[in-house]
Nucleic acid binder design. Structure first.
Lengths: 202, 202
DNA sequence: AAACAATAGATTGTTAACAATAGCCAGTTG
DNA sequence: CAACTGGCTATTGTTAACAATCTATTGTTT
């Protein structure tokens, strides 16, 4: 996940693209996705496409009915939102507490760089990239604390939640909140980090 | 999920079988699963098998490395267990509170029947079935409260947790705990239901 | 005209052959 | 003797054709 080898499988590339389209609203709710059309779009056969659709269904972004194809899932019912927020906070607080005092300079510069890119993405109004970087920032903690394993449990929540608020905070607030988390980590102050996190998740 | 049509896709049948094998310990950690062998075992081609492996990887029961096949995942690190227990309780408490006062006789008799089967499975020492029925009991709440959507978020946690304790409680304790939840629901006492739930999850 | 049945088209589910890749073992070289 | 290169085998990744299923339309019947 955070190793040097930047090779990404065809499947993951397609999955990332479709995920982005759904989260950004390019693909609207209930849109039916046809395997053949997607295969043509990405220049592969239907096999890998089916893999991707299955994957995204497991993540909750798509819903699939037997022999009836898959379509873009509706945003989760708002009644679920408080629950999902709680769980995100549970997981990410756990992560922050776990990794506090274990980060080195390389980790910090990775996060700093992420925030710089985030700032730039805001300036260029590239909101797809904003979302991507935002998620990457949080994923870093989760991965550090619980590895691929915990990331797999955590990811569906964040993806599903993102379907609800297409509109993001103002740039300044978002950057500040993330910077708050990062600063607290630098000071080995996990309590403040969690506090900053809670301000960020809503 | 709980509708009459009992038709289950080939994919799901195979997935259920493999899941059971992993949770029950028939398939031990780090066992490498070969697509061709599985295809032969289940009498299908490699296509559906690949789908299943991808699905179970998303659930965390398997891990997959590019071009290197999939193998049975190790049980989650014990440091994650408190977190996972919390989240299960979060979700299932939410579910119990949500559905309290909404259940009808049909629901209750479904749950009663489940407990009867559970008792029988214990008597016959069919622990695979015990696990299955236990999970079904809890899934009922979660589905009622949040539909397929919430089930998808919840399921990976329960599967992953089940990898840790192969050994189940004694029959009596397990039945009693579930009966406690059911009784509280019948009395529309969601508070007691949650309390009984917390006793059950550990 | 409304309801039902049959048919045609489109779409997914499955299969088997083909291509690419990783791991392993032998043979070679310093 | 250790380390490396090369090819071989086993396994996964991909493809395109075929089978099964669903949707919609059209035609028939009452």
């Amino acid at each position: 996940m955070f190793d040097n080898n930047a090779i990404v499988s065809v499947r993951d590339q397609i999955a990332n693209q479709l995920r982005a389209d759904i989260i950004n609203g390019t693909l609207i709710e209930n849109t039916k996705l046809k395997e053949h059309a997607l295969a043509e779009r990405f220049g592969v056969s239907r096999g890998p496409i089916r893999d991707v659709l299955l994957q995204l269904s497991k993540e909750g972004l798509l819903v699939s009915k037997n022999n009836c194809g898959v379509s873009v899932n509706t945003a989760p019912d708002t009644s679920l939102q408080p629950l999902m927020i709680n769980i995100r906070i549970d997981i990410e607080s756990f992560a922050l507490k776990t990794i506090a005092n274990t980060l080195d300079d390389k980790d910090f510069s990775y996060l700093e760089e992420l925030l710089l890119k985030l700032q730039k993405a805001f300036e260029q109004q590239d909101y797809a990239l904003v979302t991507d970087l935002d998620i990457s920032f949080h994923r870093f903690f989760v991965y550090k604390a619980g590895g691929e394993d915990l990331v797999n449990l955590w990811q569906p929540f964040i993806y599903r939640m993102r379907m609800n608020y297409k509109r993001l905070d103002t740039a300044d607030a978002c950057i500040d909140e993330h910077q708050g988390i990062l600063n607290a980590l630098k000071n080995n102050d996990s309590k403040s980090a969690v506090k900053a996190l809670k301000a960020n998740i809503k």
